[in-house]
Design a protein around this nucleic acid. Structure first.
Lengths: 258, 258
DNA sequence: ACCGGCGATTGACCGAGATCAACTCGACGC
DNA sequence: GCGTCGAGTTGATCTCGGTCAATCGCCGGT
């Protein structure tokens, strides 16, 4: 996968590469409209502080830690989740390259959920104080940051709708469809999915148990919609998959947020 | 109820009253730290443009309408919801006095959900352009606005957790407990709840059906936790109610965002 | 005051998905 | 190569909450 090569080149990143990288980023709207392009990318490179690399299972931040930055996934993937004192946990979302995490920390100066790498993952760190500085200098950027945050919020609403109304099969279909969509936006083949998260994580995220998810994968494979081989899932019939998302609120709502 | 009297005095509102009103408001953190107090309240009164009054069932804004302001409930209550083309709808939340609505509109210049009055309700309107003006002049306010938005987001996460993991009875318990909490913050008796929303709305919000909600009210009344009389619910045993919220993630998470 | 209608409650039954349990498969270490 | 371990799959059974249906009771209109 082409995206993988960004991982170990973090230190010796060239501007052209950075530019391509930021083009598919949730925050590129935050940079490009402000005229940050070409030679200004040095400056952007300076603002985006720490391009960390995380191994599988390593935490980007943990619930309760103090908040000081927003993060954007550069390559790899993350899951975010909350855990109760009893060790019980709830997966809140999965985050692909270009997506933002850490917004939960804006409320109280400390994070209310944890974020963890699902595979080797590299990250852009946007120190909040500096970001605030930049956005206050360019009011349009403030608005754009709002958009990004609000989009996260709406995505959550959409997930909530799904949890409330959708059948198990519709949930998995919506999950896969969403993943496929996001692959498309990253210019990756939207029919070849690599599920970096475990079946347990998927089940937890969808409000189901692992057995149900497993059965659904089998059923959807039997129906000719998917070809499933452990973490490798090929979408054979995108049309059927879309159909399986149902005509209910969650599906149309999810489409609306583009 | 004392809170009711704010409704018809919107036009001839006095500063002292405004001040008391804003004290329990989600945005009071947004006003007070900026030194807006005492005589400056005239100015605040000018920024908070339109103090509309809505009758039961009337929309504050509708899905698809263009976005131009955030709103804060002054008295009464709202529900927010999305509706699919098929007429199917999903309730996203209920909003009591002091709570903010309309944040969903920041993403795309138009609202992605609708908000509707559950009873006669008065509203503070904060035109976004003006608000943006004020926050750009005072950077600390920008941060505070972020906090408020982020808090909304975290509340949504908490609801999501509930939808994913909680049993039906725990869901209703959490809903009532949350309502009770918010009553407390408004200096209303947290044991005397007035459910302005229908059983259908509650069920929809909790991802249940109306019959289940009805049975749960009966069961909780039989258990001596509640006294239920249509829309009037008295919490007889707050301790038991809290216990029924379960020791799972949603409950502890919800406490954390308090 | 009476009636009509809708919201709410209660009961009987059913089914989707959870639970419990057995088994398979691939990865990794020695 | 072999054994172990954990993730994933598959099957059998159970249960919670959804569905269908009947009834109640409050509220608003005439």
């Amino acid at each position: 996968m082409a995206i993988e090569m960004t991982e170990n080149s973090a230190a010796l990143i060239d501007l052209d590469h950075l530019r391509r990288s930021c083009g598919s980023c949730a925050l590129h709207e935050l940079c490009l409209p402000a005229g940050i392009n070409g030679s200004d990318l040095d400056q952007l490179d300076a603002t985006v502080h720490d391009k960390r690399a995380l191994d599988r299972g390593k935490a980007l931040f943990r619930q309760g830690e103090s908040f000081h930055a927003l993060y954007v996934v550069r390559s790899g993937s993350l899951k975010s989740f909350v855990e109760s004192p009893g060790g019980d946990l709830q997966v809140l979302g999965f985050h692909l390259p270009g997506e933002i995490v850490g917004v939960d920390g804006l409320t109280k100066d400390h994070h209310l959920c944890s974020a963890e790498a699902l595979e080797r993952t590299s990250i852009c760190e946007l120190p909040y104080l500096q970001l605030q500085q930049v956005t206050s200098e360019v009011p349009a950027l403030q608005r754009q940051l709002m958009r990004v945050i609000s989009r996260e919020m709406v995505a959550e609403q959409s997930h909530m709708v799904m949890m409330g109304k959708q059948q198990a099969q519709e949930r998995l279909a919506i999950f896969l469809h969403s993943l496929s969509d996001r692959y498309g936006r990253l210019s990756r083949d939207p029919t070849v999915l690599t599920l970096s998260m475990s079946r347990y994580d998927i089940a937890n995220y969808l409000g189901l148990v692992v057995e149900t998810v497993s059965r659904l994968f089998s059923r959807m494979e039997a129906a000719g919609v998917l070809k499933v081989n452990r973490k490798a899932v090929r979408v054979l019939r995108p049309d059927l998959l879309a159909e399986m998302c149902g005509t209910h609120v969650a599906a149309s709502f999810r489409n609306a947020i583009g």
